[in-house]
Design a protein around this nucleic acid. Sequence first.
DNA 1: ACATTTAGGATGATTTTAGTCCTATTTAGC
DNA 2: GCTAAATAGGACTAAAATCATCCTAAATGT
Lengths: 155, 155
Amino acid sequence: MLQITRDGEYAVRAVLFLAGRAEGALSLISEISEAQEVPKSYLSKIMQHLVRAGLVKSRRGARGGFYLARKPEEITLREAIEAVEGPIFLNVCLIKKGECHRDEFCPVHQVWKEAQKRLFEVLDGKTMAQLVIDGESLLKKKPKKKSARKSPASV
Amino acid sequence: MLQITRDGEYAVRAVLFLAGRAEGALSLISEISEAQEVPKSYLSKIMQHLVRAGLVKSRRGARGGFYLARKPEEITLREAIEAVEGPIFLNVCLIKKGECHRDEFCPVHQVWKEAQKRLFEVLDGKTMAQLVIDGESLLKKKPKKKSARKSPASV
DNA sequence: ACATTTAGGATGATTTTAGTCCTATTTAGC
DNA sequence: GCTAAATAGGACTAAAATCATCCTAAATGT
Ligand code: SF4
Ligand code: SF4
């Protein structure tokens, strides 16, 4: 359907959450689940994937939890997504040369190539660090909408 | 999976085929199916969708067939895809405001918005007419690879 | 009439999606 | 060493999407 799955969406939320914590601080599944509104048991699977993909590290047992394996500046949005969804290919012919045998003479192939490149430019261009900053600005700017241009108090 | 479905892929192939015919010329399902390597019975459904979407017109009965409802210059790649797949939304929050209730304070939302915009720029930027031309160039340029830089004859 | 074509619906196998749940293992702290 | 707290991992499932096939109805040119 040319849409990201819940896996990818939840992975981004989880990684973004960890990026917002102090470096190396441990977060519990239950914390992440509640803050990011992801079903706890489902999130458990997502975290496993993220650990295996090397994006997140975990400590088991009492006082365990999850933390980022790398600094938020070094994790892109695309990486978070692909860690759980696998590599993105907008069409089968982008998987590898010859995957679609029409690729050599197909004019549409080139367009998908370009489209994917452009998509990646956006997804690679955002790091978790930047997203955390963006998120903070959003919270500051929009506590309520329809702000009466001057005085913050009203009614 | 963030990948176009066979529906979309086949729709593009079919519309592109029709775009390559003379204006108003009728093409049979069997012709399109064979040329574009799409299962005939499946293609039948795709063509129905394209007709209902208003991209293609059909004539039933003997000497019937399909032809483009508009000129190839006026049909974009995105239209061909969305005609059978429905509108593209890279993430649920792009469907409409409030579809994801986090959208107002979610920094990732903005990125998806930008990503989709860029994707659409590419998909909207290619018309069927242009793709036909592109296809012709590809056929001229690459009859064989590893061309011996000068003489076309060899062995 | 008849052959040719598309229209449309019913059906179905397989895969993906979006989860849940239970047990095993690891670890900290007492 | 025991125990409580956590993650690891696998089994399982319901529902939906994907990728088709097949059959009958309707339309149309000759
Ligand atoms: S766009 Fe062209 S090359 Fe890519 S899958 Fe479709 S036919 Fe094959
Ligand atoms: S990116 Fe943000 S707004 Fe969009 S679906 Fe995810 S959480 Fe919601």
